[in-house]
Design a protein around this nucleic acid. Sequence first.
DNA 1: TTGTACGCGTTATCAT
DNA 2: ATGATAACGCGTACAA
Lengths: 349, 349
Amino acid sequence: MLEKGRKMKTTTIKDIAKKLVISFSTVSRALSNDPVVNVKTAHRIKQMAAEMDYTPNLAARGLVRGKSEAIAFISTRFAAPFISNVLDSFEQRAFYTNRYVHGISPYSTRNEEELKELLLKRILRSKMADAVVMLTIKPREETLKDFNAAKVPVILIENAMKGAHSITINNQSGAEKAVNHLLDGGRRNIGLIIGETMQPPSRDVNAAAVERKLGYVAAHEKRGLHIKDNNIEVIHAYIYEEGKKALDNFLKKPVKPDAIFCAAGDIVAMGVLERADELGIKIPGDMAVIGYDDVLAARHLNPPLTTVRQPLEDIGTMAFDMAIEAIDGKLKKDKNVVIDPELIIRESA
Amino acid sequence: MLEKGRKMKTTTIKDIAKKLVISFSTVSRALSNDPVVNVKTAHRIKQMAAEMDYTPNLAARGLVRGKSEAIAFISTRFAAPFISNVLDSFEQRAFYTNRYVHGISPYSTRNEEELKELLLKRILRSKMADAVVMLTIKPREETLKDFNAAKVPVILIENAMKGAHSITINNQSGAEKAVNHLLDGGRRNIGLIIGETMQPPSRDVNAAAVERKLGYVAAHEKRGLHIKDNNIEVIHAYIYEEGKKALDNFLKKPVKPDAIFCAAGDIVAMGVLERADELGIKIPGDMAVIGYDDVLAARHLNPPLTTVRQPLEDIGTMAFDMAIEAIDGKLKKDKNVVIDPELIIRESA
DNA sequence: TTGTACGCGTTATCAT
DNA sequence: ATGATAACGCGTACAA
């Protein structure tokens, strides 16, 4: 009977050693499948361990091993479909390949530079991960160097740095495809809705936004077309209300757009569609609309949304495989994979 | 210069003690703001710590403290909008109240009973969390007892158990509201699409599905209405393809439904809508459709989807506050909050 | 094959 | 106010 008020006693290797009247190092060895231990005693030990409901203390193990059998997955937030889907397939891959099944540690930085750096420092310092995957964001140069020195591989998704492996999506190409489609359809005054392309204070730059804007510009320039001033609406929170607001803003301008490329994503594009409907603007008759992401609902919208698709599941899977390769030391130099997004043409443009 | 090949040296309290020629216990005290240390030396220590870029090793700390300054958030998977949104608001609340800012540890069990139990055991054994929040799933009775004995609070969302705090959504009420609306509109042959209500082997029961089915039945019975046999389609993966398939199955039956209540969620309902469109079935003319969840896209569908809404943000916030209260010992007995979902009437029914 | 002794980085409890 | 020392639970050279 346990004395009440006392701490619950959890069984340690010492406990099971005492019970079996052997040294706890033998227990330790048996439990980590060290072949040197006598098969019979090993069996006895394992049986007793199961019986006493033994579970290793990960903190202690991590402390002595300097490893923690985990992969850190760091992004800005969990609710974004882009992020949660990549994370999901990442984790699914772990499950499928039976490696790091319990060891995916998701973190979110809420897009705060400082939080991110502190987190990275902790992960490194406390050996909380055998590899770090970062989605959307990237570490400071100096921080990356620390990881390199500690030989903890870093995998970047949507960013690339020297000293890190990476999976990048050709955002410029994606944007060009979208804008070209609009241009081909005869549209000549294309409004762009996009996230911040300037580094906000104490926050991370949005590399994707920068590149997509580049694509928007490039598509015009390659045809010798001039981009109208004030044809860009910048959004911040990536919520659909911003789409409604953006459309309102566009309509206040002297020359109204005949098309909108919502590089800020389908969610925001939904707002555009809704506002257009409220205002009686016909899509694509009066105005064509293209989104970005191809969220699940895109094909079910009214009208079905033309959008740029990124293979999220593949990205998650590839990132996991890349992390494993890196951990296993199979990657001598930086590995960089570039993915080309695809334009899904539906009815909105 | 670091010798190459050697492990990167991360600074510990011993290092900074050596540098300052004082004992490391003083350093430890200073760093944890123990008021007994001389203010001057404390200042020197902190300064040096910052200079040497010191970060505490959480594994070591956790080992001796038996606490880890973290809250575990356990669910089945990350990609489901329901889950990722609750998690997001949960974490946002942590950020907002400035508690456990870095300490939300999300885990997913992929709906595997065994994984879940192993995970719980580990969390308890390795003191990986000061509290555990479980979304959608719940622990075994015995496991919960272990948590109680260890005084680690457990907060259940969508489930309730003796010995755990809980936030439940009145799923039966939500389903009844939906079905009543259909009945009020004159529909008399209402098909139900729902997740598995039987305990699948080695997986968790879906309590929500069970309750919603109850609501579906109750709504009929309260009006003395008879439910047609074979009017239920069971789905498993909660993907929209299953919605298409379900509609096909309904249409094969002798008596075709004049309404469908898709208690399996809006995503699946999208599949129903899509298939109906392909088949030329008019919604809501030929057939009314009600979903569940009120996902972001629901209002933008064609037609806009009538659905049952659960206040996800509130749930996440409440769960966090409840966890904090429990950790702070302010909850003497089980706290149970029940949330009543709301029917959002749009055009599809 | 098994046991002994030590260290991982902290915090906590003694002294001083 | 500070220092020495003992844990925390585990892994691992080294000795036996």
